[in-house]
Write a protein that binds this DNA or RNA. Structure first.
Lengths: 182, 182
DNA sequence: CAATATTACTCAGTATACCGCCTTTTATTG
DNA sequence: CAATAAAAGGCGGTATACTGAGTAATATTG
């Protein structure tokens, strides 16, 4: 195929550096590679893989660690608050909490003031794990953006936040808005 | 929101509670909204929500549409090739194909040359659906990046591609660069 | 203060997404 | 050409992630 003027233009617009020619071909031929939703799904999977590689020994998933993180700063939170803070569905929070409780990392109690609520807090084991795992989790985050320069990394993160703020209203897992901006 | 007294109590508990100060420092150094993996997971969810909103009437998920897209350009592909093209696990491809076949959108046959392989292709119904759904899918993609200006959007997509290229090796769902194309 | 609405949660069901183990078929090799 | 390795897929299991229906407790209201 003659990829004349169009490709030239695209390359000129690209930020820094040229892409692998094989990947460039994929983009040209598989329409999937022009869909941002697809690219984001793939990057999400890559992060999972990196996270697992770094955190293998702990047997904790990204979502589980996120939940533990929130609990470490907000003990005795109810499930809906946790869901809003994490940006996942409330039924999902219950599932994750069940698994974490089975491993003795969190403790759940019925609230006395409001008997509908189930409050969760870190067990001592959980606190230890959050601290012990933090470096590995941190490495996974760093490795994900490793290839980016300082400027590109910051621009990328800024754009991610911008997109999330603009689209926060979608889905049952909308975040509590106060999480952004402060 | 009207339960300000309770919220106050919760905050007070968080402050007075037996919070490990070292743990707090650790968590505050890399809070959720500064973890790229977390932000990408959230954006992934947002895209799903947008996709469902636009494509509700068709009852097709992003992954299903991705698979149909590949099949429309590459009839009679085997499951492993499809997995590599889509960037998902091969067992997952089998699951998705089963659901699509149940709805009469794809057809599966055993290859004659290699009896191990299951080849998939679009049924006429599937071809119709791919065409009919395309505008809605496109709208979901556009809405996701709607708030970005032209330059920021291109920079974002370029960075996404760069990150995928750099991290291609991770996970069972590593993409193939050779199967499709020529 | 009883009827009603809302809230927090549970449960069942669907759809990704992955791993490890196994069988069948094909390819390789001594 | 038989023994073995490799490839393709099936199957069972785990962990998100969400929808919709239903239950118990609390809040609101006529």
């Amino acid at each position: 195929m003659a990829k004349s003027a169009k490709t030239e233009k695209k390359k000129a617009a690209a930020v820094e550096g040229a892409l692998n020619p094989e990947l460039q071909q994929l983009i040209e031929r598989l329409p999937l590679w022009k869909r941002p939703g697809y690219l984001i799904r793939r990057l999400h999977q890559v992060h999972y893989a990196l996270f697992f590689e770094e955190c293998q020994e702990f047997g904790i998933t990204p979502v589980q660690y996120g939940l533990l993180t929130i609990l470490s700063g907000n003990p005795d939170s109810d499930q809906i608050s946790l869901a809003q803070a994490l940006g996942i569905d409330r039924t999902n929070v219950a599932d994750v909490l069940t698994r974490l409780a089975q491993r003795g990392l969190v403790e759940r109690t019925r609230s006395i003031e409001d008997k509908r609520m189930v409050l969760a807090r870190l067990a001592p084991e959980g606190e230890k794990l959050v601290a012990a795992m933090h470096p590995a989790m941190s490495r996974a985050q760093e490795r994900l953006l490793d290839t980016l320069g300082e400027r590109e990394r910051e621009a990328f993160l800024a754009t991610l936040l911008k997109l999330l703020e603009a689209n926060n209203k979608y889905g049952r897992a909308a975040l509590a808005t106060s999480k952004f901006g402060d």
